[in-house]
């Protein structure tokens, strides 16, 4: 009995790595420009489909396809920001919400037209089912471990970028006050484009890992968006390591919920999020404040 729960919690923690990847991108764009990208989840799914295409047409393994999918989504992010979202700056909360939600609906239907509603998966070979025995009762899947380690590495890299580089300083300055940042020569629109690109580059990694780990379908995006949202809300807005904590809590909650009743996987995550919102509305480790 004890071993069962240890297993469930361990799997939940590792699942949290994937959610941290989802949440980081959402948190980054919100942190830099107070924008919530509602296509976030659909772009995770798009990344998985792009990796699928790279496998079908170029024969690339999911790992190699990252070399194409990550830059592709970075480009999509820059284009999205410069082509659609930058022109709505300063016009209130509604325009970016409508634009990204409209895109979300469009993407789901385009994917459905292009790939049918069938579920797909990425084939990464035997590694998908490989596992490492830790104790007699507990063994950890290699894929979930890779996902978790990737999330930690990406968060470390992002932390370094934000605190140690010139670009990171520009990100933080724009986040604090775009007008003042412009005074010292930072082009805030360019920064927003880069932030969205970076956010979607991380999404690309999350999407490919999702595709290797499990199956995906055109309408899976909204659920992914909600997981990303919950990760950010639990972890606290604007805190990178909070995002990892949020992902882990969400993953554990979902796995524990599913163990109690298979239908409670999502419900448990929702309830933990709403509970946290009720009792600790800033999340566990908040940093960004949403002013105005």
């Amino acid at each position: 009995m004890g071993a069962l729960w240890v297993n469930i919690i361990a799997q939940g923690i590792l699942l949290g790595g994937l959610y941290a990847l989802y949440g980081t991108g959402l948190s980054l764009t919100f942190g830099v420009m107070r924008l919530v990208n509602l296509t976030h989840g659909d772009l995770i799914v798009v990344a998985a489909y792009l990796a699928l295409l790279a496998g079908q047409f170029l024969g690339l393994s999911p790992w190699l396809s990252l070399l194409l999918v990550v830059p592709a989504l970075f480009g999509v992010g820059v284009l999205l920001q410069h082509g659609l979202l930058n022109s709505t700056l300063g016009r209130g909360v509604l325009p970016p919400i409508i634009i990204t939600f409209g895109l979300s609906v469009i993407l789901q239907n385009v994917l459905q037209l292009g790939f049918t509603a069938d579920t797909q998966g990425l084939d990464a070979g035997p590694i998908e089912v490989a596992s490492i025995p830790v104790t007699k009762e507990l063994s950890l899947g290699v894929m979930p471990l890779i996902t978790f380690i990737t999330a930690v590495l990406i968060l470390t890299g992002l932390q370094w970028l934000l605190t140690k580089t010139k670009l990171g300083r520009a990100f933080r300055a724009t986040s604090d006050d775009p007008t003042t940042a412009e005074l010292v020569g930072i082009n805030s629109r360019q920064i927003y484009g880069l932030a969205m690109g970076l956010s979607l580059a991380i999404v690309a990694v999350g999407g490919v890992l999702l595709g290797v780990r499990t199956t995906f379908a055109p309408t899976d995006g909204p659920a992914r968006l909600i997981y990303a949202f919950e990760t950010v809300i639990i972890g606290g807005l604007g805190n990178l390591w909070g995002t990892l904590a949020g992902g882990i809590i969400l993953g554990v909650a979902q796995n524990v919920g599913a163990q109690l009743n298979p239908a409670w996987f999502q419900l448990a995550g929702h309830l933990v999020t709403l509970g946290l919102l009720a009792f600790r509305p800033t999340g566990l480790l908040a940093r960004t404040r949403d002013v105005g």
Partner: peptide, 29 residues
């Protein structure tokens, strides 16, 4: 209301959506 009012803008939009999902899952169960 007091729960979702803690969220703003896009997060309010997703938060209300999560609330609707909770009711859907509860009724489905």
């Amino acid at each position: 209301a007091p729960l979702v009012f803690r969220l703003r803008g896009g997060y309010f939009a997703v938060g209300t959506w999560v609330v609707a999902e909770v009711f859907r899952l509860l009724i489905a169960s």
